[in-house]
Simulated scan of single mutants.
Amino acid sequence: MSEPKEVIFEKDEHENPKPEMKRVEGKPTSAFKGASWSALLIGVVAYLIGLYNATMELNEKGYYFALLVFGLYAAISLQKTVRDKEEGIPVTNIYYGVSWVAIIIVLILMAVGLYNAGSITLSEKGFYAMAYVLSIFAAITVQKNIRDSHRAREKE
């Protein structure tokens, strides 16, 4: 095999050099922040459209809506407490424990609700599960991005 040849690009004298962008350590990129917000909006909107169009009774729709709101809050709260502990910010053990219990309970309630839902098809159950997981994961990511951006602004 032959040796790879080195390619040298000459700079055009009329070309303006691009200014060097300074990147702050730990600051999420705009693309990542946009992708996180998009995932959150897509997950929540898809879940809510699915609930709106579902043939289930209103009380059952309310159950799944409450699980979405509770799940989003529980996931953000857990992410914050885990991150606080990691960074040495005081977190009471009771709140840390409650955050873990809340996320575990909401995931169990969603799993049991979907397992026992007789009025929706298996494909709809999969749709709700995936939209729910996407929403929770995206909420954690958005909260992390907000916190990282705030910390990066403090460093500047």
Rank of each mutant, 00 (worst) to 15 (best):
M130L: 15
T92V: 04
Y63A: 13
P19E: 05
Y52C: 02
D12I: 01
K155A: 11
K125T: 07
W37K: 08
H150L: 13
N93S: 09
V98S: 07
G71D: 02
V44Q: 07
T29S: 15
K22G: 04
S149F: 13
D148C: 06
K11C: 09
K5R: 12
Y132H: 07
F70G: 13
L67E: 05
A74N: 04
L72F: 04
G97N: 08
E124I: 04
L41S: 09
L51R: 02
K18G: 01
A74F: 01
Y47R: 04
I8P: 07
A117H: 07
I108M: 12
A111Q: 10
Y96Q: 05
R153L: 15
R147P: 00
E10I: 12
M110E: 05
N16H: 13
I104S: 14
A129R: 02
I103Q: 07
M130Y: 04
S36P: 05
H150M: 13
E60L: 10
D148E: 11
I104A: 15
G126W: 05
K5S: 14
V142Y: 01
T29D: 03
L78V: 06
S38C: 02
P17H: 06
E6T: 15
G113E: 02
P28Y: 03
P90C: 02
R153G: 06
T121Q: 04
Q79G: 15
L134E: 07
L72S: 12
I146H: 10
F32M: 10
A35D: 12
E57Y: 06
M130S: 11
I42L: 08
V98R: 13
V44C: 06
N59K: 11
S30K: 13
L58G: 09
A66I: 02
L41C: 01
G34Q: 02
R151P: 00
Y128I: 04
W100E: 11
F70E: 14
G88F: 04
S38E: 12
L40K: 02
E60G: 11
G118T: 03
E87P: 01
Y73G: 13
T81C: 07
G88W: 01
G71N: 01
